[in-house]
Simulated assay, not measured.
Amino acid sequence: MSDQRRWVARLTPWFFLAVPLAFLVTFTYVPAANLVAYSFTKWDGFSPAKQFVGLDNYAQLFTRPDLFRVFFVCLYYLAAAAVQVGLSLYFATVLSFNVRFRNFFKGVLFFPYLVNGVAIGFIFLYFFQPGGTLDSVLRLAGVHGQHLWLGDPDLVNWSLAGVSVWRYTGLSFVLFLGAIQSIPAELYEAAEIDGANRWHQFRHLILPGIRPTLSLTVILCVSGSLSVFEIPFIMTGGANGSTTFVIQALKLAFQFNKVGLASAAALVLLLLVLLVTWVQRRIAPDEGVTAL
């Protein structure tokens, strides 16, 4: 092969990658760099002048109680994420075996994830109304009274986190089900011949086999818990102590015109997601199917 053909062969992939890389740099890395720069300034988003304030924006995020409260709100969604992973793994394991109406139950579990988030928000607004659907169900169970599910600061975040579990369990369920069904059937047959029951199959066969998927699902759930926005924004707008990271950043930037402080909040959120991902990868690195 001549030198000219060799250079053409080397440069051809870069010609195809030039446009995607240009879009990636323009719409991802440049805005990210601007975000970092804005986080060290006091800027209203309109004025051409930006006042450099150093780490003052970050100090405000961690010292002002009204801004620091969002860290505690995330704990509700992290608890909901743990419930979501447990439920989805349980249903995926049960429905991976030959049970009656399993295709029907698969559809029931996955359907909420297909529904538009705005529609879910309005549906559950009626569900959580005082004297509404949830209170009517509770009265049938002997619990009387009208509860302010979205108006009580002690209940609102639990209610919103419960909606998140209902909506996103189907996604985790599908990921787990696909991973479980990818395990060779011969391993199940060998386990049954050796006298392994369902619990032993789950512990020694399914869990090791789906470890990469479990790791991915945990990362998605944790990052989603930190960046939750749609459901609380539609249902409460962040009222009654339900403000999340993203809602707070939006309000700071577009309601109070504090773009520098909002940029710092967004950057802290990004760093938290990256930190949680790194810690999770260190604790439970991806591995293939381990030997039984």
Rank of each mutant, 00 (worst) to 15 (best):
S2V: 02
R6L: 09
V8F: 08
V8W: 12
A9Y: 09
A9D: 13
R10N: 01
T12R: 12
T12E: 11
W14K: 00
F15H: 06
F16W: 14
F16S: 02
F16K: 04
L17T: 03
F27N: 06
Y29Q: 14
A37D: 13
F40C: 00
T41S: 11
K42D: 15
D44S: 06
D44C: 08
V53K: 09
V53A: 08
V53I: 15
V53P: 07
G54S: 09
Y58R: 04
A59S: 11
Q60E: 14
Q60N: 13
F62V: 15
P65C: 04
L67I: 04
R69T: 09
F72W: 12
C74G: 15
Y76T: 05
A82W: 08
L87P: 04
A92C: 06
V94D: 07
S96Q: 05
R100L: 12
F101P: 01
F101I: 03
F104C: 06
V108D: 02
P112Y: 09
Y113P: 00
V115P: 12
V115L: 14
N116K: 00
I120W: 11
I120D: 06
F122I: 13
I123H: 00
I123L: 15
L125P: 00
L125T: 08
G132P: 07
D135P: 04
S136K: 09
L138V: 01
G142L: 07
H147T: 14
G151M: 06
P153S: 05
D154S: 13
L155F: 11
V156D: 03
N157C: 02
G162I: 09
G162Q: 06
V163P: 01
V163C: 05
V165Q: 06
S172Y: 10
F173V: 00
F176E: 02
L177F: 07
A179K: 09
Q181E: 15
Q181H: 03
S182Q: 12
A185P: 01
A185D: 11
A190N: 09
E192H: 11
I193C: 07
I193A: 08
D194H: 10
A196K: 11
N197I: 02
N197Q: 07
W199A: 10
F202K: 06
R203E: 08
H204G: 03
H204R: 13
L205W: 10
L205F: 09
G209N: 12
R211Y: 07
T213W: 01
S215R: 12
S215N: 14
L216R: 03
L216S: 11
V218L: 15
V218D: 09
L220P: 06
V222S: 07
G224Y: 08
S225G: 15
S227K: 15
S227F: 03
F229H: 05
F229D: 03
F233R: 13
I234A: 07
G238W: 09
T244A: 05
K251I: 00
F256L: 02
N257Q: 09
V259I: 13
V259T: 06
A264F: 04
L269D: 03
T277K: 01
W278S: 02
W278H: 05
V279T: 07
R281I: 03
R281N: 12
R281V: 02
D286N: 09
D286I: 03
D286T: 10
E287S: 12
G288P: 01
L292Y: 13
